[in-house]
Design a protein around this nucleic acid. Sequence first.
DNA 1: CCTGTACGTACATGCTGCATGTATGTATGG
DNA 2: CCATACATACATGCAGCATGTACGTACAGG
Lengths: 189, 189
Amino acid sequence: MSRKVEQGEVTRAALVDAAVALFTEKGYADTSTAEIVRRADVTRGALYHHFADKEELFRAAHEAVEKDIFERVRTAAEKTEGGAVERLKAGVDAFLDSCLEPVVRRVLLTEGPLVLGWERSLTFDNPYCSRRLLRAAVGELRPGEEPEPLAHLLYGALLQAGLVVAADRERRAVMGRSLSDLIDTLFEG
Amino acid sequence: MSRKVEQGEVTRAALVDAAVALFTEKGYADTSTAEIVRRADVTRGALYHHFADKEELFRAAHEAVEKDIFERVRTAAEKTEGGAVERLKAGVDAFLDSCLEPVVRRVLLTEGPLVLGWERSLTFDNPYCSRRLLRAAVGELRPGEEPEPLAHLLYGALLQAGLVVAADRERRAVMGRSLSDLIDTLFEG
DNA sequence: CCTGTACGTACATGCTGCATGTATGTATGG
DNA sequence: CCATACATACATGCAGCATGTACGTACAGG
């Protein structure tokens, strides 16, 4: 049971890689499964063997990108010396940097909420949801206060900043400063 | 040339109405043009006479909803006595109330950015863009400061609050209070 | 008349998902 | 050690549906 499943993993990974690349370039709706399998150098049969439908393939691609960002934000925050505010700022900076990459902006920020349903993006359930990190930070900085509402607002501001940055790299610095000021006002005032 | 164009306007309006209703119920991708014309009681020929393609029909539906919200927010802010902070809060409240409606959450918040492109939602160019109102408020409350970055962040927080409210009406009050507190901290601290 | 507008109809194309076929690897009984 | 039974991975053709377009028709107005 080694040879077969090994090849299966290779094929599956090739499909996910091709899907991430094409969804980034052309979006979900404008990418056909035929195009994906051509890029992955497999057949449509292979795709529908590994994934129930096109949406499930997108889900796999989305999870791969999401996990990558989550790890980057988490390690950036963890390796930062200083208080909770500094760690929060470090995580925010790492997130904004990630938003400079087309794959993040397209797969994670733009198409994810639509294809998978926007309700999914509002929960804290997902294991690799960056929103969880934000809620933890707010809980630490505002002990005794329900952290979720403010975490939602901050995440919205962060996402919006990410979209602005993704649309125009020149604004990376401005938005980063504005976010930093916002955090200062909220947690050090 | 009266009888004909008049009938044309009626047909066009029927198409937009049907499109708004169906896009709200089932989303853009899962709504076929056949379904739309059936609901509007016209033929697909009529649809493709008035609109270049399905996306242009969505654009018309989107604009109708957007204009409606814009007017509601603007009048809510204008008819409020008190300072700029109070008017801002009134506008925010009106926006959150609008988000309780499925048509707003679906057509405006969720599908709009994808179908029309998310860059469009980042500009202040659109005549009926609620973001403009927010930028004006920030400019008034923080004179001498470039208003756009903070306006972007606040709009992101507002959108996120709208999504939370749309997903769970019970949170309308909590998110409204959290936003109100945020505005107080930013502009009265 | 005759021209432009508003619509109806038939069709060409492309895409998704499924159903069916095939080859290859693995486990097992004797 | 071998044959048989079975599971897995993949290939291929097809049906259904959706979009957009080409063409035909009816009618209002100059």
